[in-house]
Computed example of a mutant assay.
Amino acid sequence: MSINALYTDLSGYYDLMCADIDYPAQSLGIQRLHQLFGNGGRRHLDLACGTGPHIRHFLNLGYQCEGLDINQPMLDVAEERCPEAVFSVRDMCEFRFDSPFDLITCFLYSIHYSDGIEKLQGCIESAHQALSANGLFCFNAVDKTRINNNLYVSHSARHDGSEFTFRSGWHYVGSGERQSLRLSIDRTTNGISESWQDEHPMVALSFRELATLLQPWFDVTIFEHDYERIVPWDGESGNALFVCVKR
């Protein structure tokens, strides 16, 4: 099944697919970083917002939120979840807004959905332009040089009489600027099983390369991928939080 088919036809199952994600902890973790590094403003934009679970928590924390995504069925769910927020179908690699934001987020490694280094640079420049003075851009990323193609994460859930198993893992061939996120969904209903396989092409780069792209626009600090504690990146782990203050 193609990328668009997976996310369009199964957008109603997206929250189930992400049921093991601790959205409150992630949102609170970024709020703490915003308190430490931000400019005190409360206007928030979430890139690749999906069905809006992070935005829901930021609204509850007192932010004024907007979200963008390329998938309208996802945004239909987000609008029901977050009627106070504003959503729009836009490409996160090239966007403009009339009013600036104080915090821009991009969760769940979605920064890698940029189609190549040039597109990723467009995302970085768009975020810089959309931020107010000393605004904050926060996202998580994976280092291509530390990807283990044999590692996967999986979880199971029951929904509407069906048993689902979701599985995902990074894959990198070892060279170039392309990596992929491999996904599989198995559904069993009344003893009948169906399976979807998908592979999402994503941009691949090291943390050193990513920091180099960011530094003309932002002051960059890299932290461990830990939303419970604020810990500097150890230089070894392959997942990290990037905290970027607009120059």
Rank of each mutant, 00 (worst) to 15 (best):
residue 144 K to L: 05
residue 50 G to E: 04
residue 131 L to T: 06
residue 11 S to L: 01
residue 147 I to R: 08
residue 142 V to T: 14
residue 221 T to Y: 13
residue 105 T to I: 05
residue 224 E to W: 01
residue 188 T to P: 02
residue 207 F to I: 02
residue 234 D to V: 10
residue 196 W to I: 13
residue 235 G to E: 15
residue 85 A to L: 06
residue 52 G to T: 00
residue 63 Y to S: 06
residue 227 Y to Q: 14
residue 141 A to W: 11
residue 214 L to V: 09
residue 209 E to S: 11
residue 167 R to D: 15
residue 166 F to V: 15
residue 139 F to E: 12
residue 29 G to C: 10
residue 39 N to A: 08
residue 44 H to F: 13
residue 87 F to M: 04
residue 77 V to H: 02
residue 127 A to P: 06
residue 115 D to N: 15
residue 125 E to D: 11
residue 20 D to R: 00
residue 122 G to E: 14
residue 56 R to S: 13
residue 37 F to S: 04
residue 84 E to P: 01
residue 180 S to I: 06
residue 209 E to C: 08
residue 180 S to G: 06
residue 50 G to C: 07
residue 101 F to T: 10
residue 152 Y to W: 14
residue 129 Q to L: 11
residue 194 E to W: 02
residue 1 M to L: 01
residue 96 R to W: 06
residue 244 C to V: 09
residue 59 L to S: 07
residue 146 R to Q: 15
residue 142 V to R: 10
residue 129 Q to T: 11
residue 228 E to M: 10
residue 171 H to S: 15
residue 216 P to C: 08
residue 57 H to R: 08
residue 1 M to S: 06
residue 37 F to L: 07
residue 96 R to V: 14
residue 29 G to R: 05
residue 68 L to Q: 04
residue 38 G to F: 05
residue 220 V to R: 04
residue 33 L to A: 09
residue 215 Q to V: 02
residue 97 F to A: 14
residue 118 E to V: 12
residue 116 G to R: 06
residue 187 R to K: 11
residue 168 S to N: 15
residue 72 Q to L: 03
residue 53 P to I: 01
residue 221 T to K: 12
residue 238 G to E: 12
residue 64 Q to V: 09
residue 172 Y to F: 15
residue 136 L to Y: 13
residue 119 K to L: 07
residue 37 F to Y: 15
residue 22 D to R: 02
residue 243 V to P: 10
residue 108 L to E: 08
residue 191 G to F: 04
residue 212 T to P: 00
residue 71 N to C: 08
residue 155 H to Y: 03
residue 109 Y to G: 05
residue 105 T to P: 09
residue 22 D to F: 05
residue 176 G to Y: 09
residue 47 L to C: 14
residue 25 A to Y: 07
residue 183 L to D: 14
residue 21 I to D: 03
residue 89 V to A: 03
residue 245 V to L: 13
residue 75 L to A: 01
residue 20 D to S: 04
residue 141 A to E: 08
residue 184 S to V: 05
residue 159 H to G: 05
residue 25 A to P: 04
residue 245 V to P: 09
residue 116 G to F: 09
residue 196 W to F: 12
residue 177 E to R: 08
residue 95 F to K: 08
residue 73 P to A: 02
residue 49 C to Y: 00
residue 29 G to D: 10
residue 216 P to H: 04
residue 45 L to A: 08
residue 9 D to K: 00
residue 208 R to W: 02
residue 11 S to R: 00
residue 102 D to Q: 03
residue 16 L to G: 06
residue 198 D to A: 10
residue 219 D to A: 14
residue 59 L to M: 03
residue 31 Q to E: 12
residue 47 L to W: 08
residue 46 D to C: 03
residue 190 N to H: 05
residue 151 L to H: 15
residue 27 S to R: 02
residue 145 T to V: 05
residue 163 E to D: 14
residue 189 T to Q: 12
residue 174 G to F: 03
residue 16 L to F: 03
residue 56 R to Y: 03
residue 39 N to M: 06
